[in-house]
């Protein structure tokens, strides 16, 4: 008698997936899974792990990840597109998140936004031609006493002034190697208002 028991296709999937998700990513994801009640419970952590390694989540990664987590691509897409910090479109080497919430707005957000746009040559939601920066607005970054505030990558910059921004943006950025197979622009935006979300 043959028997197929309830799904445990993770083994078989692992082979296919390893071509999309790298061993270190899988190790990190497995660690999350080790203390979750079921695989798909780590969906958000896993998306963040993939994004940490690739800067964004491509369609291929999304599909591979969904298989790995025993969930459907549609469901994972629903999760990925809900959260503002999961990028379903490519972003530059560093994301500049300029706080646009109330205190920063009072303290001169509008001028700084214009200033950064001018410096980078791109508007909000866009990536510089050299692919170094993606410029995004951010909700309150929790440092209102030092407003205006922005984050560049993981670093928070306080008490911003145009001069200070110039300094920050001129600091050479550690170039991480470009992805080997540059992934095509995702066709994901199904609704208008197309910032990477």
């Amino acid at each position: 008698m043959n028997q197929s028991t309830k799904k445990d296709n993770s083994q078989a999937n692992a082979r296919i997936i390893s071509s999309i998700l790298t061993a270190p990513e899988l190790a990190e994801i497995d660690h999350e899974i080790s203390h979750a009640p079921y695989r798909s419970a780590v969906a958000i952590d896993a998306l963040k792990i993939v994004q940490k390694h690739h800067r964004w989540v491509s369609d291929e990664s999304l599909t591979g990840l969904a298989d790995y987590l025993d969930m459907s691509t549609a469901e994972l897409e629903g999760i990925a597109t809900f959260y503002s910090l999961i990028y379903r479109k490519p972003v530059g080497e560093k994301v500049i998140s300029l706080c646009d919430s109330v205190t920063c707005w009072i303290k001169g957000y509008a001028q700084l936004e214009k200033h950064i746009s001018r410096q980078l040559g791109v508007g909000l939601g866009e990536t510089t031609a050299d692919n170094r920066y993606t410029f995004l607005p951010a909700p309150c970054l929790g440092a209102c006493d030092r407003a205006p505030v922005m984050m560049v990558g993981e670093e928070t910059h306080l008490d911003l002034t145009p001069d200070k921004i110039n300094q920050i943006l001129e600091t050479p950025i550690l170039k991480s190697p470009a992805p080997k197979n540059p992934v095509p622009k995702s066709p994901i935006s199904k609704s208008d208002g197309g910032q990477p979300e």
């Binding site: 459907s72 691509t73 469901e75 897409e77 629903g78 809900f82 199904k190 609704s191 208002g193």
Partner: peptide, 11 residues
């Protein structure tokens, strides 16, 4: 499994 709610707010 292949239909889902995606995006957020009024999108």
């Amino acid at each position: 499994t292949d239909l889902s709610a995606q995006g957020a707010h009024d999108h």
